[in-house]
Amino acid sequence: MNIFRLVADLMHLGSILILLLKMFTSRSCAGISFKTQALYLIVFVTRYLDLFTHFVSVYNTFMKIFFISSAGYILYMMRVPLKDTYNKHLDAFRWEFLLGGAGVLALVFTHKYTVIETLWTYSIFLEMMAILPQLLQLQRTGEAETITTHYLFALGAYRALYIVNWIYRYETEHHVDAISTMAGIVQTALYCDFFYVYFTRVLKGKRFKLP
C-alpha cells in the first residue's frame, strides 16, 4: 500500500458516498446511468471472488464488501424507491457490446485460464469501459447537476491516482501488471473531456454544461 493508492481508494469510496447523498437529498436518480451502475456491480462481483480464497487485509476485505454492497444498494434505489425519476431513454448505450467485448478481451489476455483469474481479467476490462453509458448520457443531456459532476470527478480522480500508484510501484517494487495498467490508462483517458469541463466550469462556480 502506498499513499497514492490509499487516497485513490478513499476517492472511490467518497464518490459512492456522494452518489448516495445525491440520491437521498434530491430523492431522484436523474442524470445517473443505471447501466453504468449495473456494470460496476458486475465488476465488483467478478473481481472480488477472491474474498473467499485469498485474504489480503482487514482493510482490503472491508473495502471489497463495501463496494459490492453499495453497488447493489444503488441499483435497488434506482429500481425501487427512485424508479419514477429514472429516464430510460437517456440511458441508451448499447451495453451488450461492453459485456461481450470485455469477455473477448479477458479470454485473450488473461494471465491464467482458471475461472477466478479469467473473471478477474474480465472485471478489469469491463471497468475500463463501464463509465461509457454514463458519459453518453451526460453528452445527450449536455448538462449535469453539480453534485453529479463531483461524483464523476471523484471517480475519475480515483482512476488517475491509480496510474500514479503503478508508476510508484514500478519504481519501488519493480512490479508492473500490464493488464491493469493498460486498461487503467484507457479508462482514465475516457475522463479527459469531462475533467476539462469540470475544471474550467464547475470549479469556477458555474453550471456543468457541454459546449
Binding site: R5, V56, M63, H175
Partner: peptide, 10 residues
C-alpha cells in the same frame, strides 16, 4: 514479487 498480477489492489 514475481507475480504479474496486482491482486492486492482493489
Amino acid at each position: 514479487n514475481d507475480s504479474p498480477k496486482n491482486h492486492d489492489e482493489l
